[in-house]
Design a protein around this nucleic acid. Structure first.
Lengths: 172, 172
DNA sequence: AACAGTTATATGCATCATGCATGTACATCA
DNA sequence: TGATGTACATGCATGATGCATATAACTGTT
């Protein structure tokens, strides 16, 4: 019976992920751009090279991506004060609005699905999701990437952070 | 606390979906090509236009995609016997091997995650996934799309099919 | 039977995100 | 100071895609 679970669970995850990304892309951004907006919303002051790592794109492609977002008035670039090579990125006001809209769209999709569950079932799902997420997490960079579309303001005790801190402790 | 669940669940679904697609793309196919292989593995004899619907691509782009897959010896085209316009597609032997490999890669990723759960927890997840999947399903075409990477041979009582049949009955 | 409208596939053309190779400015270390 | 490494930028090529259009085949109407 394990196989049927794999199919059902896998199909559900892909269906949900599809839904989230397609609703986000309705704003006229391609996926990499939407992900960049997500990251920059969480981590203002990110350098281009770090953004490149986070969205799994080459440095060159990220430079162009940032240029596009800057042209559209979504992102602002400023020189680093401590390193003359580095360019620091942050969302403009319009970029922040878009970021908020993106998170809202994601949340709507999730709510629609979660409405199908009772509150007991939701609690169970929360427990299971945390366990599964921990099993999926790889390194620091991956953890950062996984949260790229989260609404961090409401993620008081983010399970990803908890897990990464736990791993740190184990190492020491 | 609902919001934390939304973040965790959403992040988990996206992390898993990322993993599945990136493992599949290691075979040198872009996502749309991998999805086409998935569909054709389940539905040999599919026409180009129906494949286009299934992978959400324009007809023109699908024609080119099929040409690429044919060039690589993965897909075979044959004229329909009942309609002189239609081209019927099926996987070549190599295409079928690739399809099997794809499903295996997906399954490996899912197994890795599911190992973190006890068998009771897995049973609970199966129940919850089915409920969530039903809530996410839209029309016939979407249902077909959602299963695009499943291993249908082991999906004896596919919850997607069950749900779509239930809806049919309600309408009649 | 002829004609109009529709459908399935194909193709010319332009666009655009991307990678590779390279260039340039700055930083770090010996 | 000089060598190496790092961060960003850019020229060039590739490749997947969409739009507009062409072609062939089917369907329904008169």
């Amino acid at each position: 019976m394990t196989n049927a679970l794999e199919n059902t669970f896998g199909a559900m995850a892909i269906a949900l992920s599809d839904d989230i990304f397609s609703s986000i892309q309705a704003n006229g951004l391609v996926q990499s751009e939407a992900e960049a907006i997500g990251h920059l919303g969480h981590a203002p002051g990110l350098a281009i090279s770090h953004l490149a790592d986070a969205i799994s794109l080459s440095h060159a492609a990220t430079v162009r991506l940032v240029a596009r977002l800057e042209d559209r008035g979504l992102v602002e670039r400023s020189p680093s004060e401590t390193d003359g090579r580095t360019v620091l990125l942050k969302l403009s006001e319009r970029g922040q609005e878009l970021h908020a809209r993106q998170m809202g769209q994601r949340q709507d999709k999730l709510r629609t699905a979660l409405k199908a569950l009772s509150s007991d079932e939701q609690a169970m799902l929360s427990f299971l999701s945390t366990k599964l997420l921990n099993a999926l997490l790889r390194d620091e960079n991956h953890a950062f990437r996984v949260c790229r579309l989260c609404n961090r303001q409401v993620c008081a005790n983010c399970p990803v952070e908890t897990e990464m801190m736990r791993r740190e402790e184990v190492q020491c």
